[in-house]
Amino acid sequence: MKEGVIIDLLKKLFKNDKDVSSKNIAKERLQFILIQDRIKLSPGEMESLKEELLAVLSKYIDVDSSNIKMEVDRHDDMMALVANFPLKRSV
């Protein structure tokens, strides 16, 4: 019990839990939701878009399918869908 408190305290003092802090969860969820809102795609359609893109790209290049990122960027009047397909390091 006492140990738990101390560990908690230490964790707080040296906290490196930035990525799991609820603000970052909020931000990520929000970004994902807004992609769908802005381009009016349902999560299902988004997923199949991702898969189809992946299938096409995989024909030509080796893609790291676990790290794909898709975002909608806004600059002034323009919106762009930015898809990020990291390449697998050639072994």
């Binding site: 802090s21 609820s22 603000k23 909020a26 929000l30």
Partner: peptide
């Protein structure tokens, strides 16, 4: 809450809303 990382900060929101 922002400092604890439990609330989105201003930069987060302005970045998103642009």
């Amino acid at each position: 809450m922002v400092q604890k990382g439990d609330m989105m900060d201003i930069d987060d929101m302005i970045e998103i809303l642009a």
